[in-house]
């Protein structure tokens, strides 16, 4: 049923559960598994250095997350490709899944407060609303 699975990971407990589910499904369906992590940089900034600092910190963090994901999948006998991109999370996840021809995206539920959800929106909401393929949200 699922031949290409994309799991979005950000190092949160929910995304770790999403990765574990994605690995299980990849084993079950013998699907190709890829993880994507999105390093978000705030657009409204006052200093170029703020951008660079945020970017380097985020990229370093997601690189470590990706390495851990690859290792986790490998321990369960799954070959995992891990990609880190920059940009707005929902947009990049959708774009990546479409370009990869994935037919399932798995995300962890972020559990934002109502206020944060109102102002920032939710990545899971946006992905599930705009993506062409099936979306599984892990709580």
């Amino acid at each position: 049923m699922f031949h290409k699975i994309v799991a979005a990971i950000d190092g949160s407990p929910a995304s770790e559960r999403a990765l574990a589910t994605a690995v299980d499904l990849a084993v079950h369906y013998e699907a190709e598994l890829t993880t994507i992590s999105v390093a978000e940089v705030p657009e409204v900034v006052a200093m170029v250095d703020e951008v660079d600092e945020t970017r380097h910190t985020a990229e370093e963090y997601f690189r470590k997350i990706s390495e851990a994901a690859v290792e986790f999948a490998r321990s369960r006998g799954v070959a995992l490709r891990s990609v880190v991109v920059r940009g707005q999370a929902a947009e990049q996840i959708i774009h990546f899944a479409e370009s990869e021809g994935a037919n399932l995206i798995i995300l962890g539920h972020q559990g934002h407060s109502r206020i944060a959800r109102f102002f920032l929106g939710s990545t899971t909401d946006r992905v599930s609303e705009h993506c062409h393929c099936s979306v599984m949200i892990i709580k």
Partner: peptide, 15 residues
């Protein structure tokens, strides 16, 4: 480059 880093899957035979 649109992606910052890509980790290709390691050979599973190694495990």
């Amino acid at each position: 480059e649109t992606s910052i880093a890509t980790l290709e899957p390691p050979s599973l035979e190694e495990t």
